[in-house]
Computed example of a mutant assay.
Amino acid sequence: MCSFKKFMLVTFCATLTLLQAVAQAASYVDVLELPAKPSALAVRSPLLDVTRAGERLVAVGQRGHILYSDDAGAQWQQAAVPVSADLNAVHFPTAELGWAVGNDGVILHSNDAGATWSKQLDGREIGALLVQHYGALASAEPANEQWPLLVAEGQRLIEEGADKPFLDVWFADAQRGYAVGVFNLILATRDGGQSWTPLQDRTDNPQGLHLNAIAAAGEALYLAGEQGLLRKWDADRDRFVAVATPYQGSFFGLIGSPGELLVYGLRGHVFRSADGGASWSPLDSGLQVSISAASRDAAGAYRLFTQAGHMLLSENGSTHLQLLPQQSQSPVAGATLAANGALVLVGGRGVRALPVE
Rank of each mutant, 00 (worst) to 15 (best):
G300R: 02
L211P: 00
V131I: 03
H269W: 09
E55H: 15
S330C: 06
Q227F: 11
T306I: 01
Q207D: 13
L223F: 12
L345K: 05
A172H: 10
H310R: 11
V344S: 04
T306K: 07
Q132E: 12
S281I: 15
S250D: 12
D163G: 11
R190M: 02
M1E: 08
V22M: 14
F171V: 00
R237P: 05
D191H: 04
D49Q: 09
G348H: 14
F7D: 14
L18V: 09
L129T: 07
L19E: 08
A25T: 06
L121G: 03
A215E: 07
A339M: 08
Q120M: 03
L223G: 05
P325N: 15
L209M: 05
G228V: 00
I255L: 14
A179M: 08
E33V: 06
A115E: 15
T306P: 08
L32P: 03
A80G: 06
G154Q: 06
A128V: 09
F4I: 06
Q326T: 12
I126C: 02
M1K: 14
S295Q: 03
A14R: 11
E141M: 05
A95K: 12
S3L: 13
S314K: 14
A235P: 01
Q132M: 12
E357S: 09
Y302L: 11
Q327R: 12
A115Q: 15
L121Y: 01
S45A: 15
L47I: 10
P331R: 00
G350F: 07
P35A: 08
T11N: 12
D234F: 04
K37E: 13
P82F: 09
P148W: 02
A301C: 02
H320T: 14
Y247N: 04
D297G: 02
L34D: 11
T306F: 08
S328R: 06
G228R: 03
V263I: 15
S39P: 00
T15I: 12
V131H: 04
D275T: 08
Q20E: 12
Q207T: 10
K6Y: 10
K232M: 02
D49E: 10
R237L: 08
H109Q: 13
S314G: 10
L345T: 06
A293I: 09
G105E: 05
A335P: 09
A23N: 11
Y178L: 15
P148C: 07
A174I: 13
E125W: 04
K37M: 12
L199V: 01
V106D: 00
A308L: 10
Q288M: 13
Q175L: 13
V31N: 04
T11Y: 14
L223T: 13
M8S: 11
T17F: 15
A298L: 09
G114R: 07
Q327Y: 10
A298S: 05
G208N: 06
P198K: 04
A138V: 01
A174W: 06
V83W: 10
Y178I: 09
G276K: 01
N144V: 01
A294N: 03
D163C: 02
A220V: 07
A338R: 00
V106T: 07
L185R: 07
A244S: 08
